[in-house]
Amino acid sequence: MSGTSPKPPISSAAGEFGARVRARRRELGLSQEALAEGSELHWTFIGQVERGQRDLSLHNILRVARVLDVDPGELVRGLRG
C-alpha cells in the first residue's frame, strides 16, 4: 500500500449521483462489469462514477439508467452543482 488516500469526489453532486448508481446496481444484484457491459462503458469508468470522480454526459446517464431500469430523473433529482 502506497499510503495515498483515495481521490475525493469531484463535487457533492457527483458523489451523491454515484451513490445512487451504486445503490441501484446492488439492489439489482449487478456487478460493475455487468453495468458497464450493458451501458457500453468501461468498468473502470463505472467505478469512477460510483466514487463521484467522473462527470457523465447526458447520453451516458441515459445509458446507465436504462441498464439500471430506472428513470434518469431519479438519479439526478434534487442534485445541485
Rank of each mutant, 00 (worst) to 15 (best):
M1H: 13
L41H: 04
Q53C: 11
F17G: 08
R26V: 06
P6E: 11
S57V: 08
E74F: 01
R51T: 05
K7I: 15
E74N: 05
F17I: 07
G18D: 05
I10A: 04
L62F: 07
G73Q: 11
T4Q: 14
S11E: 04
P6R: 15
I10D: 03
Q32C: 05
G73R: 11
S12F: 10
E74A: 06
R54T: 12
E50T: 03
L68G: 01
R20I: 02
L68V: 04
S2W: 10
A14P: 13
L58G: 13
L56K: 05
S57C: 10
I10T: 12
G81A: 12
R63V: 07
M1P: 12
D69F: 04
R26K: 15
V67W: 01
P72N: 02
L28G: 00
K7N: 13
G29N: 08
A36I: 07
R25C: 02
R51E: 01
H42R: 14
G3R: 13
L75H: 05
L56T: 11
A14E: 02
V49A: 00
L75K: 02
T4P: 08
Q53D: 10
P8W: 04
L58Q: 10
S57H: 09
R80L: 08
S2K: 13
A34S: 14
S31T: 11
A36V: 06
R26Y: 04
I61N: 00
F45V: 06
E50F: 00
L30K: 00
S12L: 12
A34T: 14
M1K: 14
D71H: 06
S2Y: 11
L58V: 15
L58N: 11
L75P: 08
A13R: 06
I46E: 02
T44Y: 13
R54W: 10
R80M: 08
I10S: 08
R80S: 14
R80P: 07
A65P: 13
R80K: 15
L79W: 06
S2E: 12
Q32Y: 02
L75A: 04
I10L: 10
G73T: 07
G18L: 02
G15T: 04
G73S: 10
E27T: 07
H42T: 12
P72W: 00
D71P: 04
V64I: 09
V67N: 00
F17N: 05
R22H: 09
D71C: 02
P9G: 03
L30T: 01
R77C: 03
R25F: 04
P9L: 01
A23K: 10
R63W: 08
S5R: 15
V76D: 05
L58K: 08
G15R: 01
A65S: 09
S5F: 13
P6S: 15
H42K: 15
R77K: 14
T4L: 14
A65Y: 01
S57K: 10
L56E: 01
R25S: 04
A65V: 06
E33S: 11
L58D: 10
D69H: 06
E37V: 13
L75R: 00
N60D: 09
S31N: 03
A13Y: 07
V49L: 00
I61Y: 00
L35Y: 06
E27H: 11
L58I: 14
G52S: 09
T4E: 15
K7E: 14
I61G: 00
R80F: 09
S31L: 05
I10E: 06
I61H: 01
G52P: 13
H42G: 13
R24G: 03
L41D: 04
L41C: 06
